[in-house]
């Protein structure tokens, strides 16, 4: 049994794993709460007789597909933007998870994995901001 294997097994009770599990759960709960809040507001404001159809693809407007404008409109109480902000928080949850892993690997001076984590993190941020 090599040293690294021993360390991996003790890692099963490593507090960093607990942190990652909690982070994911809390992230999902907050995101879901924001989506519920925005959704209730949206339904309350929608005209009762308004028909809905997603049969044709138009693409979302600038205001609902760009990070900055989503948060700006959500803060101004725009219900659809609030749902979208909740969805962004959900997307941010696994990204935060990768960031936490990068920090954890750097702490144990595992530079190879800190580098791999940072590369994954970079790809995720790139796709969200410039993709």
């Amino acid at each position: 049994m090599s040293e690294s294997l021993k360390r991996d097994f003790s890692g099963a009770h490593d507090p960093s794993r607990e942190n990652i599990g909690n982070l994911l759960r809390v992230g999902v709960l907050i995101a879901a709460a924001v989506v519920v809040f925005g959704g209730v507001l949206y339904l309350a404001h929608a005209p009762r007789a308004q028909k809905t159809s997603f049969g044709q693809f138009h693409g979302e407007s600038e205001g609902l597909s760009h990070l900055g404008s989503i948060f700006a409109r959500a803060f101004h109480g725009h219900p659809a933007a609030m749902i979208q902000a909740g969805i962004l928080l959900l997307i941010a949850t696994p990204i935060a998870r990768v960031l936490l892993a990068a920090v954890t690997f750097a702490r144990v001076r595992d530079w190879i994995y800190a580098g791999i984590s940072c590369t994954v993190l970079g790809l995720l941020i790139w796709s969200l901001v410039w993709g």
Partner: peptide, 28 residues
């Protein structure tokens, strides 16, 4: 799975594929 999906979600969002009114009931 979550990390993989987050990578393409960014692209989808920018391309206007993510509609809040449809995504809300699906996600919840």
């Amino acid at each position: 799975i979550g990390v993989t999906a987050a990578a393409s979600a960014g692209v989808y969002l920018r391309k206007g594929y993510i509609d809040p009114v449809l995504s809300m009931p699906v996600m919840l």
